[in-house]
Deep mutational scan, measured.
Amino acid sequence: VTVHVNRYTYHFDNPEEAEKFAREMAKRLNMTVEIHGNTLKVE
C-alpha cells in the first residue's frame, strides 16, 4: 500500500496501518484522504 503526502511517498505492508497513517497526516495538515485502490493520497 502506498501513501502519498505532498511530494513524499510512504510504503506500508499493512493496509490498516497505511490508512491510520494517512488519516493522521491528513488531520495534522488539515487535508483529506483519497483512496484509489492500493494508493492513498493526502490532498
Results as ranks from 00 to 15, higher is better:
V1R: 03
V1Y: 15
V1P: 04
V1F: 15
T2I: 12
T2E: 08
T2G: 02
T2L: 10
V3Y: 00
H4L: 13
H4P: 01
H4C: 08
H4Q: 13
H4W: 08
H4E: 11
V5M: 06
V5I: 13
V5S: 03
V5C: 09
V5Y: 08
N6P: 03
N6D: 12
N6H: 12
N6Y: 13
N6C: 06
R7H: 14
R7L: 10
R7K: 14
R7D: 13
Y8G: 06
Y8M: 13
Y8H: 14
Y8T: 12
Y8N: 11
Y8A: 10
T9N: 05
T9F: 08
T9Q: 11
Y10W: 11
Y10P: 00
Y10H: 03
Y10S: 01
H11Q: 07
H11T: 07
H11D: 04
F12T: 00
F12S: 00
D13T: 11
N14D: 14
N14H: 08
N14R: 07
P15Q: 13
P15I: 15
E16S: 10
E17P: 02
E17V: 08
E17H: 07
E17N: 05
E17R: 06
E17S: 08
A18H: 00
A18Y: 01
E19Y: 15
E19R: 08
E19T: 09
E19P: 00
E19V: 11
K20I: 12
K20N: 11
F21H: 01
F21Q: 00
F21I: 01
F21M: 01
A22S: 02
A22W: 02
A22K: 02
A22Y: 02
A22I: 04
R23E: 11
R23D: 08
R23K: 10
R23M: 09
E24T: 06
E24Q: 07
E24H: 07
E24F: 09
E24P: 00
E24V: 06
M25P: 00
M25N: 03
M25L: 14
M25S: 04
M25Q: 08
M25E: 12
A26E: 04
A26C: 08
A26D: 02
A26W: 02
A26L: 03
A26F: 02
K27L: 14
K27C: 08
K27F: 13
K27H: 14
K27Y: 11
R28E: 11
R28D: 08
R28K: 14
R28Q: 13
L29G: 05
L29R: 01
L29F: 12
L29I: 03
N30I: 02
N30F: 04
M31V: 10
M31I: 05
M31N: 03
M31L: 11
T32E: 07
T32H: 12
T32K: 14
T32V: 14
V33D: 01
V33M: 05
E34N: 15
E34D: 06
E34R: 15
I35V: 12
I35W: 14
I35C: 07
I35N: 06
I35F: 12
H36G: 05
H36C: 07
H36I: 13
G37H: 06
G37V: 06
G37P: 05
N38L: 07
N38E: 06
N38R: 04
N38P: 07
N38V: 05
T39A: 09
T39F: 08
T39V: 15
L40S: 04
L40T: 03
L40V: 13
L40P: 03
K41F: 15
K41Y: 15
K41R: 14
V42H: 03
V42C: 07
V42P: 04
V42A: 03
E43P: 04
E43H: 14
E43S: 14
E43A: 14
